[in-house]
Design a protein around this nucleic acid. Structure first.
Lengths: 214, 214, 214, 214
DNA sequence: TATGAATGAGTATTCATTCAT
DNA sequence: TATGAATGAATACTCATTCAT
């Protein structure tokens, strides 16, 4: 009985490993070719499989995409959390959380594409399905959460902290989008610097307000 | 000789008119079907042409896209300029310029898609080409210019005004992107309100600084 | 030795039971999805098996089809026999036998599809094989037999009775085919009524002849 | 102007010729491989085209099928009409009309398959479309019409003549189906003879009735 | 300037079957 | 006996582009 359990466990582990290899292959294709080039054939070839074989492991192409995105978001969460853990002051945590978020996507621009591609849920017939959308949403929220928490620790209300968080998310996304399309360079600026400036302005204001009200 | 010139002029005018009709058709297709649905066939059909015929007027599908984007940017410039012209105070001009920019794309989300699709130039073999990129850049800059000018009128340096302008551009883009993909709604927020808040925060800070230094 | 036999017997019984369950599942799939939808995967899923598992019980997809057809024909035989048993006069038996045949397929049109699909044997490399074809033929003959027997009882020769039987078979098949493809409706007619008329015409003629010769 | 008309006429003729060549190729594929083997690729290959090229001439695979069927039905009509024209008496016309119908499909069994495949209209999403279905229906009706006309000439009511016509259609279809699937041979019979017998029985009855009532 | 015709590469997905475990 | 995994061939159809006319 225990032997069977052990075998089942190992079988499951092999299964998961193969899935992971496929997801890894998909990630490599994304990185090299972008979303447009990430056809099922290309992913299968990169993974050393026949296209049909992938359907044993995933229900559809979009399901593979979703898995890539999920692991990307998990990575992002981890990176942000680690950065925050190193800081003692709320202001420091706010700064590094936002910058870690930004830097992650600055380093992995395709991951941002992927997220935005998949998050167009609802319009597409095969758009993830509600449960997977929910799951990915949660993962994204978790990655951003430290920003709101740090803001609260700096003394703003929960609502305002959320607004700040979403604002940072939007600003980072916008800057990365502009960077990605060469618009930032064209204005002779630097996206990371602009992001840092955005965050610092916020912190400055929060500290001023703290000084006034404290 | 003059007769020939006249004929050439008229020929050229007819040519331009036909181009314009095609671009108009393409715009309609974009609006109705989005980027994915805007195949050359669809555009040709909408314009009342055969696909092959479009190649007499444009070098490629992307060239048509570029023309649509150009006219979109021209429209944007006009809208922003008109909004600014109605305001007397620098603060008012800053506010309406940024909001006009945002509102334009909030109302025409396909135009934003198009811009970002085309501005991925450089990596793609058929990505606009340098001279067309330059031209579109200029159009975009002009649309944003009023924001910087208003900021300067509020007393900040030219460099800082430019930074503010690019920041507003990025923030608007990010918010629209998030809105477009349903992320804003998911956080229970409103993109226009967040944009207004972003602009108002800036203006408040600039006026405070003005009060201090003035 | 006897214990071994008993075990073999039970093993065989279990085997047959499992086969029967698969055939039942296949029948359900046929009924719900028709021939096109009756893929091996679908049948396996309906039976609670993996596709590969079915190959331990049947040589091929067609072999499963054949088994479904065999049980369908057995059913048909039973239905016809029961109908005939209730009638006392030869004319009555002729009528109900033919109509029972017709009604069976009118109620189970998929079974007719299946029969015609499988009976295209000979050209296809995997077409049943001769022995299975023979077996199904016999089952079909048995189902039709009561028609010929009733005709003979009405006084016609054995040869003519056979001809009448095959004619009724053909007429029923043709009507059902036309019904199935909407041609009967298109001519504003009713397949069951046409079948009844066909049978009644025969009986009338047989009785006239009987009166003359008797 | 006339030259242009002439050119247009020729262009149209070339166009029709090419369509006809494709239809011919499709017919050959049908004959050799049956419905299942008549994939778009196969038809294209047989016609000496790329699959994509066929889409310039036809909207879909089913549209090609429909064209093959249409020409088949036109042929059928012609064959039946010619046979009828040669006969002077109503009885002769009835006999040859029914037998010509039967013989046509006995010689071209794939054409029957095709008809029944396409006439499943309504259930399929791409099932011909109502107007094409209508057109094919009319062609079929026309082919059968001489049977009803001859029956009327033999003195039966229009309604009964229609019933006879549909009955002959059904009987022929059924016999051909059984022949096609080897069931006739299995009973040691001959489909043409059975068909002839069916028709002759009818004629005999009609003439008897005529004698009585006349 | 415009068309009809054609291409070749591409798309995701389904299928029956096989095989090592 | 049963499974998970994999294959190779097949499916209809779409795309941007080219070219002779």
């Amino acid at each position: 009985m225990m032997a069977q359990q052990r075998r089942q466990g190992r079988t499951q582990a092999v299964r998961d490993l193969k899935r992971e290899l496929i997801v890894e292959a998909a990630r490599r294709v994304f990185e090299a070719e972008g979303l447009d080039g990430a056809s099922l054939r290309a992913i299968a070839a990169q993974a050393g499989y026949t296209p049909a074989a992938l359907y044993f492991h995933f229900d559809s192409k979009e399901a593979i995409y979703a898995e890539v995105l999920r692991s990307s978001l998990a990575n992002l969460s981890k990176v942000v959390a680690q950065a925050v853990a190193r800081m003692k002051t709320p202001a420091g945590r706010l700064r590094v959380a936002a910058m870690a978020f930004f830097d992650f996507y600055a380093r992995n621009p395709r991951d941002l594409d992927l997220g935005f591609y998949l998050f167009r849920g609802g319009m597409k017939p095969k758009g993830l399905g509600a449960e997977r959308d929910e799951e990915l949403n949660t993962a994204l929220s978790e990655a951003l959460r430290p920003i709101a928490e740090a803001a609260e620790a700096l003394g703003v209300s929960r609502d305002e902290a959320e607004i700040l968080m979403v604002g940072a998310f939007a600003h980072a996304s916008g800057l990365l989008l502009l960077e990605h399309t060469g618009r930032i360079r064209m204005f002779g600026m630097s996206a990371p610097k602009l992001m840092a400036r955005y965050v610092d302005d916020w912190i400055e204001r929060l500290e001023q307000r703290g000084a006034r009200t404290g």
